[in-house]
Structure formats: C-alpha cells, structure tokens
C-alpha cells in the first residue's frame, strides 16, 4: 500500500501544478513511513515541503493556500499527533465554504496515518476517526487495499471539499497487490462488497478489513456465509449498500479498532435499525477496540479485534444468541 500511495502522490504532483505536499519530514526523509519517498527530488523543495513541527500551522497554512487556489496535501504523521490541528480543521477547513457561502473553499487533503498493531510508543497507535466524522463539511475516507489507496487519494485531491484521508499504518507494507500504473480515481462515497454472502453482513474499513475477511473465512468453515462490506468512505457513507446487504442477510456485525463508545459502529447500528429494522433477525453486533487508552506493545493484542475473536462473537451472538 505504501508504494501505491507514493505512486498516487507522484501522479497528483505531476498532473496538477497546484498540488503540493507539506508535512513534517515529508521531504528529505520521504516521510516517516516513506510514503513520499523521492518526491522532493522529483518535484523540488517548493512543492514537497518539510514543515516545522507545528500541526496547527501545517493545516492552517495549507488552508490559506487552498483558499488562494492551491491544492495542498498535508501529512500529520500519526493520528495521535493530529489533535493540535483539530481546531483548524473544525473551525476553518471544514466550514469556510459554509461561512462564505461558496465564495471561498478549501480543497485539500489531510493525510493521517492511524491504527495499532505496530508495537509503537504512546500516541502512535490510535484510531480516533470518530472525532473527524462528527465535523460537518469534512469527508473522511479510509482505504484498505493498495488499489483503493491510490484511487481514493487521487479522488481526494480532485475533490472540491476537504478530505481527511486515513491511512492504516499496519497495512502500509503488509497488504500488497498489483496496482495499475496509470491515473485513476476511486469514487468517494461508494462502499465495496469484498465478499458476497447470505447469512450475515460484516462491515469494516481500513486495517480491520484483513481481520474481518479472515473471520469470514472461518465462519464459512462453520457453515455461515458472510457478506463483507469495506466502507472505504465513512463520510459520505454508502447507506444503500449497507441496507441492501442487511435486507438480504438479516444479521450485522460492525468491526473497528476504535474505542466502542461514540465509535462508528454505533452510528452504523443506528442507521441499520432505522432503515432495515424489520429485516433484522438479531441486534447489531459491535466488535471493537475498548474504551481504554490504547495500550503499549505488550498488551495491544488484547486491545485489537482478531480473526478468531470476531468469528466467535459473530457466531455466538448472532447465530446462537
């Protein structure tokens, strides 16, 4: 996935001279995850900008650039480091269109690597996407595959509105596939059905897609046919794909590594009961991270949902409950 993102950034920079990349260590170092590897050499330090360690400034300055006609992409290194920029995102980036009734807009991409399972220090493993989902005027996308990572990134750069682009750190180098070399976009707002099934709908996104698909395999071995939806875009949400699947299966589990309370699973559960209540055979199940601080390396396996655990919960609570 890292290579697909690098390829996407390169195409974005070469295709539109208004595009620029800014963030801590994105230039000389090529990014802490090497996502912008070699781009500074190819496009120059004026378009691949090593910024001071100042997240609010990075986002706020990029916002000003966007209003003045540029197409900035910023990187915030880790979700746990994105919070100093939160004020700029919620107070200005997401609402300048509204504040000025379309006179000024902020077409920009805020790339935020997120998620656990990487044995990192405190603040480096968080999955706090809910705090971005709650902001009107912001789109939030999360790829789970290299092909989507590139396509969604290019769609985000083209988008007339600001997009928070969440990158699953754990998938950067663990998820690989052949990615088309040409320029293409993956539409924002369309979920992907990764696996068709008839008995239960498993809904997830980002890094947790691997565990969710693994759980579907396990369930198949136990005679349960699971349909798996990769949301890809959390805002806007592809409600139709979710509802169509639930009407077919009658059972739903949402899987995410973010804390449970206020997590997106609750929102999905609410939408499902509003739109497909009479199709439901069982209550909507949430398989999530916990309402604790994300633990350090020794305990993170206790925190993250895993394949066997997801399969077990789905089987016992949706089929044997």
């Amino acid at each position: 996935m890292a290579r697909a993102l690098n390829d996407g950034l390169r195409l974005a920079l070469s295709g539109d001279e208004r595009v620029l990349l800014m963030g801590e260590d994105v230039g000389r170092a090529g990014g802490v995850f090497r996502i912008s590897d070699k781009l500074r050499g190819e496009f120059g330090e004026e378009r691949v900008i090593d910024a001071p360690v100042a997240e609010s400034g990075i986002v706020g300055v990029a916002f000003g650039m966007a209003v003045a006609g540029m197409r900035p992409i910023v990187e915030l290194q880790f979700m746990g480091f994105s919070y100093p920029a939160y004020d700029q995102i919620i107070s200005h980036v997401s609402r300048i269109r509204h504040r000025s009734r379309h006179r000024f807009t902020a077409p920009m991409v805020i790339r935020i690597p997120y998620g656990g399972g990487i044995g990192a220090a405190e603040h480096h493993s968080e999955s706090m996407e809910s705090i971005y989902l709650h902001i009107p005027g912001l789109k939030v996308v999360v790829p789970s595959t290299p092909v989507d990572a590139k396509g969604l990134l290019l769609a985000a750069v083209e988008d007339p509105d600001p997009v928070v682009f969440l990158e699953p750190i754990r998938s950067y180098r663990s998820i690989t596939e052949v990615v088309p070399g040409d320029y293409y976009t993956t539409p924002i707002g369309e979920a992907a059905v990764r696996r068709e099934g008839t008995d239960v709908t498993l809904i997830s996104y980002g890094a947790m897609m691997r565990e969710t698909l693994g759980a579907a395999d396990v369930l198949e071995g136990r005679g349960i046919s699971a349909e798996v939806i990769d949301l890809r875009s959390l805002v806007p949400l592809d409600v139709d794909t979710i509802v169509a699947s639930v009407i077919k299966t009658g059972r739903v589990a949402v899987v995410h590594e973010a804390p449970r309370t206020g997590g997106f699973g609750g929102e999905i559960a609410a939408i499902v009961q509003e739109k497909a209540f009479f199709s439901l055979e069982m209550p909507v199940l949430r398989v999530t991270g916990w309402d604790s601080v994300f633990p350090l390396k020794r305990s993170e396996r206790l925190y993250l949902p895993n394949v066997a655990g997801i399969a077990e919960e789905v089987q016992t609570r949706l089929f044997e409950g």
């Binding site: 620029l20 004026e46 609010s56 400034g57 706020g60 300055v61 990029a62 916002f63 000003g64 650039m65 966007a66 209003v67 003045a68 006609g69 540029m70 004020d87 700029q88 107070s91 200005h92 300048i96 504040r99 000025s100 000024f104």
Partner: peptide, 22 residues
Amino acid sequence: PPSITVGGHMVHAVGLSWAEKM
C-alpha cells in the same frame, strides 16, 4: 470573512500569501 475564533486566521494569511508567492 472575519475570524470569530481568536488567532486561527493568522496562519491562514501565511498560506494565502505563500500561495501568491508560488
């Protein structure tokens, strides 16, 4: 349009002027 929150707009001016420089 005026910034109602205090201070956030100063970084915007940096970005606006930087874009013009670019």
